[in-house]
């Protein structure tokens, strides 16, 4: 596990960013979490599936990169490059994280008796081991492509500002994702993805733990339910997930190429 460190200008003013390196975090990721706003981009390059989080069993949206744990067929090991046109927000945000913590009420409850604000608070953190982060040795020049976090006047640099924007987008996106999932569950539109695949080397595999949209149930929805989905703006997301299923063939093809090359 990566140790996250709260970002502090006092300690981190010598750090610099290598934005081009953020994609290297994709190495070995079979699944990348997604938010609804990016589904249409992802659907153009790879399958989108629903998976369950290990510790909560809650559904999340994921970009599927491979068929077994640790496999990312869209990541080229030799060049350390992400092969997709679109880099999911979860990678764009590297090397930054938001760490969530509850702020416990240190002060007594308000005059109206209401509890103090217990809404989650976030701290901006960095992953010190990230390839997208470097530290400038005293007197040494910045490497090519490197950018500081802060400008001389103390304001945020452009890539730092962008990364913060991505984090804000993710935070909002996760709420939207929860709403979408709730809606899908309520209308019973999630079904297990049952898939047996045989690869070029005749090895076969049964995909497990992946879920997709139940198209039959979607087609049979009552008009009121369809209107509700439309008004909430979920139909594009739903059709992106459905449409992305054809990308499974691309993923199989990538796997076959890899098998043949071996």
């Amino acid at each position: 596990m990566t140790a996250l460190v709260a970002l502090d200008p006092k300690f981190h003013h010598t750090c610099y960013l290598l934005p081009e390196q953020a994609q290297r975090h994709a190495a070995g990721l079979q699944l990348i979490p997604l938010v609804p706003a990016e589904l249409s981009y992802v659907a153009a390059q790879q399958p989108i599936v629903l998976t369950k989080q290990a510790d909560s069993g809650q559904f999340v949206l994921s970009a599927l990169n491979g068929f077994v744990s640790g496999e990312n067929l869209l990541f080229a090991e030799h060049s350390q490059q992400w092969q997709g046109l679109y880099l999911p927000l979860q990678l764009q945000r590297q090397p930054f994280f938001l760490a969530q913590h509850q702020v416990l009420a240190l002060q007594p409850a308000g005059a109206d008796g209401s509890a103090k604000d217990n809404s989650p608070q976030y701290t901006l953190c960095i992953d010190p081991a990230s390839p997208a982060l470097g530290q400038q040795d005293i007197g040494a020049p910045l490497p090519a492509g490197a950018q500081r976090l802060w400008l001389p006047d103390g304001s945020d640099s452009e890539p730092f500002r962008q990364a913060k924007g991505v984090l804000a987008e993710l935070l909002q996106g996760e709420q939207q994702r929860a709403q979408l999932i709730e809606q899908l569950l309520q209308l019973q539109l999630i079904q297990p993805l049952a898939l047996d695949i045989t690869f070029a080397d005749h090895s076969s595999l049964r995909l497990q733990g992946l879920y997709c949209i139940d198209q039959q149930r979607l087609a049979a929805l009552a008009p009121d339910d369809i209107v509700r989905l439309h008004q909430a703006g979920w139909l594009p997301a739903i059709y992106s997930i459905i449409g992305s299923m054809t990308q499974l063939y691309r993923l199989i093809e990538l796997k076959n190429q890899q098998l043949v090359a071996r």
Binding site: K52, S56, Q58
Partner: peptide, 11 residues
């Protein structure tokens, strides 16, 4: 405890 917190999914 987790079932109390998150619930089990129907699917």
């Amino acid at each position: 405890n987790k079932i109390r917190q998150f619930g089990l999914s129907p699917v």
